[in-house]
Design a protein around this nucleic acid. Structure first.
Lengths: 242, 242
DNA sequence: GGTTATCGGATGTAGGACGTCCGATGCTCG
DNA sequence: CGAGCATCGGACGTCCTACATCCGATAACC
């Protein structure tokens, strides 16, 4: 037995300790009333203040970075981050691809959630939509149509269309979540291959959604979005059945 | 210059390299067709295979663990994880609390998203709801009423009510997301204090929601849920205005 | 005065040493 | 012979040291 002196609180699982460490760091940020963009103490300082080695601390810091809590800049310092959902996207993408090998369950669930969000919120968004925002939506549609007639893929334009659809709500969390879903879907899209999708038809579908929004017809807009998602769902199902 | 032999790909930001490393690990899982619960190579093996130090590797592994991609068991090994959104909850909770110091913007956005999901999906859930599931919902209501009349708080019962409301959809992703929102809301709830909420009134509100669901009245159910969330939103706004 | 070289500090990476935990093997004892 | 326990080996957890890399700022230089 070499346990001379102080015995560390050994009766806790390592995982719990690491989570506690993360909480401590976040608590420290809140206590010191740091705002987004404010600098955090250096690794050495934190390491000393929290009573853990730099290595252990760094593992927690990396997690916080992945969660979008802090931002780390090499050779400069660490800061409270504004917002970053990229890591979540990676995690979900992984699960989605993993599930594609079975029945694509998680991928379909993802579509369900997205559908609920979009068709559920389109009405509210239309309520506060400005003329400029409406115009920017049509612009995205036009871009899709151009790309479609050229036979090129238009995933980016598609994503932009949906993003602009809900920009008026001014809800960053929602935009971020939808961004995550898009990222995942895009990756899955690559996985299941281009398939036999009809670009022109898809573009036309978006044109009709825009038309309903422009006309202020909430019911139609919601309905069309639902049909849009049915199509996506069908494509995933078909791809899995190979 | 001591760059003898191979020069590491030095022209990339450290952050990009770390993300690449995470992707490599996930790619490795997909390539080897590992399923949830399957063991990963040991840290040493991975460290060697990917050509990075154990320390760097561990930082990526910890992130993947936080994202719910892998599960790490001390002294045993690492495994592909089933599903885990806890870390996401922590990240969102932090942002929510951070935003409470301003105008509670992010907290309100969170409620908006939750509202869209719940009032948007209640109809679909009612379509596939079994009698047993309906009964379990009433059970949750009863529990809330009991606790309310006893003057005790019933956050857990409240969360359970909402969870059971959407259990029929069989959408794990949705349940997880809602679980995250609850976790965040609960933490924020503690932050803004018990306030002057009327427990009995809240319980009654849930009773009426249940009644609408039991009666198969989708429109009323959705409407009541919306009103429920309006109340939550009001409480957050009031708490911030101090 | 503008540009460049240098410096200090902070994060990034690597490797080693030791502690801690877990499951499995093999032993002892009833 | 079987149940319980001690031991063992492997794997993750933590810490330390050393060095590389990067960034911003200061100071030297033209």
């Amino acid at each position: 037995m070499t346990t001379s002196g102080v015995v560390p609180q050994a009766r806790f699982s390592a995982q719990a300790r690491l989570r506690a460490l993360q909480s401590d760091i976040m608590e420290l940020i809140l206590e010191r009333e740091l705002e987004a963009g404010d600098p955090l103490p250096t690794e050495s300082e934190l390491s000393g203040a929290l009573g853990v080695g730099r290595n252990t601390l760094r593992e927690s810091l990396k997690v916080l970075q992945a969660l979008g809590v802090i931002e780390i800049r090499h050779g400069f310092g660490m800061f409270v981050a504004p917002s970053n959902f990229d890591a979540l996207a990676d995690g979900l993408t992984f699960r989605g691809r993993l599930s594609l090998r079975h029945q694509g369950l998680e991928a379909l669930q993802l579509v369900d959630v997205r559908q609920a969000l979009e068709s559920g919120l389109i009405g509210s968004s239309m309520d506060v939509m400005s003329k400029e925002q409406l115009a920017s939506i049509e612009e995205a549609v036009k871009q899709m149509e151009d790309l479609a007639s050229a036979g090129e893929n238009f995933v980016a334009a598609d994503a932009e269309f949906h993003r602009r659809l809900f920009e008026p709500l001014n809800n960053e969390l929602l935009i971020n979540l939808m961004g995550v879903f898009w990222k995942v879907y895009r990756k899955i899209h690559v996985e299941i291959g281009p398939g036999n999708e009809d670009l022109v038809k898809t573009a036309a579908m978006h044109r009709s959604i825009y038309a309903a929004v422009a006309a202020g017809d909430k019911v139609s807009a919601s309905e069309l979005l639902n049909r849009h998602f049915d199509g996506i769902r069908r494509r995933i199902t078909e791809a899995v059945e190979d």
